[in-house]
Amino acid sequence: MSFSIKSDVKDAPESGKVATIYLEGELDSLSARLFQKEIEKVAIESPKDLVLDMEKLTFMASAGLRVLIFSKQKIGPSLNIFLVKPQQPIVDTLEHTGLLHSVTVVEKYPA
């Protein structure tokens, strides 16, 4: 299955910790399990910003949406979620499900 994920957490002195997760390939119900594990891993660091690099993510099923919801519920309502360069069909999915206004779509992070 073509899916890969990696993450890092960096300390930003002024703004708190920033967790970045790079998603590549197709995010379906199976790969969403890996995504959720990665969220659980970075959640330990209590990041203030969660940055999801989606430039190379070509597909996202509802299981991926559920992990987005999970991340906010796990890390806390003050978490800011940034999506870097999501592809149009994924933006459409987020829009149809009303999740788009809970995240910030950016060209790059930090802006």
Binding site: R66, L68, P77, T93, H96, G98
Partner: peptide
């Protein structure tokens, strides 16, 4: 999920029903 469910903030969201919703849509 109806309009009200879909406008709730993430932290109050129920986790189910989105797959079928996307299918139908």
């Amino acid at each position: 999920p109806d309009e009200e469910d879909l406008t709730k903030p993430l932290e109050e969201r129920q986790i189910g029903g989105l797959g079928i919703f996307l299918t139908v849509k």
